[in-house]
């Protein structure tokens, strides 16, 4: 589903990604771990083209990100085509980024109605079903400011799911939450993984990674240091850097 080979990215003179190799199969969950500034968010944002890669190759579901392949040439996508490609990739942010001027229900309905052209009635029914799935059917008419952090993040997950994505990206979805609210968000993600959603999750929740992930990837300094079975990478890391990091986190 996601295939990265030697992905590079720099901001000005600073190299943030220096050759990332990574593969996530359909229906699998991949957890990205690593110290702050190691490029986890940047890599995630490259996958749905919020950032342009400067080198290497990156493809989602067989299609090169941000490009169209014809013969052996790659053409840069137009704005419209980029937006089209992003529909299939849901993203959940550390700081929720719900639209504060819309209710929970309107947040979830916005993209299906305005982007996918679904009728309001249909989008509404869909949105209510999704909100029910994340346990928030009774909060549909609330504005984000009237919801707790955990509830906001669950609405954000429902909003991303409303476009029926093939792939979900999570960027530290529980890092901005009070400890007692982390569980409710992880529960939703666990359920999503069990239903077979392909997920790339940046997280510091080692327990979640160990339990849910099919692959754990440890990144540092813009490269993948160690990747593999989470029990192996997180339980018995082979690399010194991974061990140092885990000893600090646990």
């Amino acid at each position: 589903m996601v295939h990265a080979e030697g992905v590079r990215k720099h901001f000005g003179k600073v190299s943030v990604l220096r050759g990332i190799d990574l593969s996530v199969e359909r229906g699998r969950v991949c957890c990205l771990l690593g110290p702050s500034g190691s490029g986890k968010s940047t890599f995630l944002r490259c996958i749905n083209h919020l950032e342009k890669i400067d080198g290497g190759s990156l493809s989602v579901d067989g299609a090169p990100v941000g490009h169209r392949q014809q013969g052996n040439r790659l053409y840069e996508l137009k704005e419209r085509e980029i937006a089209r490609a992003r529909r299939d990739i849901g993203m959940v942010f550390q700081r929720f980024n719900l639209f504060p001027h819309m209710t929970a229900l309107e947040n979830v309905m916005e993209a299906p109605v305005k982007v996918a052209g679904v009728t309001r009635a249909e989008a509404r029914a869909d949105a209510l079903r999704l909100l029910d799935r994340v346990g928030l059917a009774d909060r549909a008419e609330r504005y984000p400011a009237q919801l707790s952090g955990g509830q906001q993040q669950r609405v954000a997950i429902a909003r991303a799911l409303a476009m029926k994505p093939k792939l979900m990206l999570f960027d530290e979805p529980t890092s901005a939450l009070d400890p007692e609210l982390v569980g409710e968000v992880l529960d939703v993600m666990r359920q999503l993984a069990a239903e077979g959603m392909t997920m790339v999750v940046v997280t510091h929740e080692i327990g979640f990674a160990r339990e849910v992930a099919d692959t754990a990837v440890f990144m540092d300094g813009g490269v993948v240091v160690e990747a593999g079975d989470p029990r192996q990478v997180l339980g018995d890391p082979q690399q010194e850097r991974t061990r140092t990091f885990l000893s600090k986190v646990l």
Binding site: N48, L50, A83, R86, M91, F93, N97, F99, V115
Partner: peptide, 26 residues
């Protein structure tokens, strides 16, 4: 907040729609 436009883009909203529906109302 720039995160608003990013969230909109990640849902497949194009820049013009994002400006009209998400950024301007706020």
């Amino acid at each position: 907040d720039a995160g608003q436009a990013e969230a909109a883009h990640s849902l497949g909203m194009r820049p013009a729609l994002t400006t009209r529906r998400i950024v301007l109302p706020q």
